[in-house]
Nucleic acid binder design. Sequence first.
DNA 1: CGTGTAAGGAATTCTGACACG
DNA 2: CGTGTAAGGAATTCTGACACG
Lengths: 106, 106
Amino acid sequence: MTYNDASYKDKKVISIGTVSELTGLTERQIRYYESRQLIFPERTKTGLRKYSFQDVETLIEIANHLEEGVWTSEIRKELKKREQQLNNSNIRTNLIKGQINAHFKI
Amino acid sequence: MTYNDASYKDKKVISIGTVSELTGLTERQIRYYESRQLIFPERTKTGLRKYSFQDVETLIEIANHLEEGVWTSEIRKELKKREQQLNNSNIRTNLIKGQINAHFKI
DNA sequence: CGTGTAAGGAATTCTGACACG
DNA sequence: CGTGTAAGGAATTCTGACACG
């Protein structure tokens, strides 16, 4: 195993047209959510935006929240909170993985 | 968990320029290996090629083989063999996963 | 066999703005 | 606030071919 699968999820390689298809959102909407600091695509040297699968999932959640009438400012707060929880959870997950690997050595 | 991570690996969403960066191969080379039946990108309605992370990994292996002087026809045979083995291995892996899940129910 | 390149065209993406509300 | 659109330009990608060997 060269990579762990998580590296695929976070690698920014998808262009906006494909993200639009994957999420059902328009490019206009996707760019707007970036201006509202909800997602953070990378840029190629020439300025083209690149997104990750994680961004795609976040965008789908954003769309769901907006349909419920939640403001982007509120969504931003929740996404930040979630990211914090994720960090904590990963610490524990890695601990568990380490124990499992130590015992099984698959 | 909405998706399992494998779905990211096989989803064809990366355009050829990005694949070129990821692999260090020229677009010419990447298209040529397709003509030799070593990789199978999808196409958008308008004809643009889309690759998966799995394709990227395969391309890197192709490049390594070619450096060793192996012909594309030989590489094709090996890739087919490998795919067959992968199928068998997945059957067993899923069996094991099922057993683990049945006992731990994380 | 595997790869480079110039050629012309088609499809994608970018930004800033006007619009509605 | 969130989204649509027309506008003009820049960057990407495509195919078929000539070239070397």
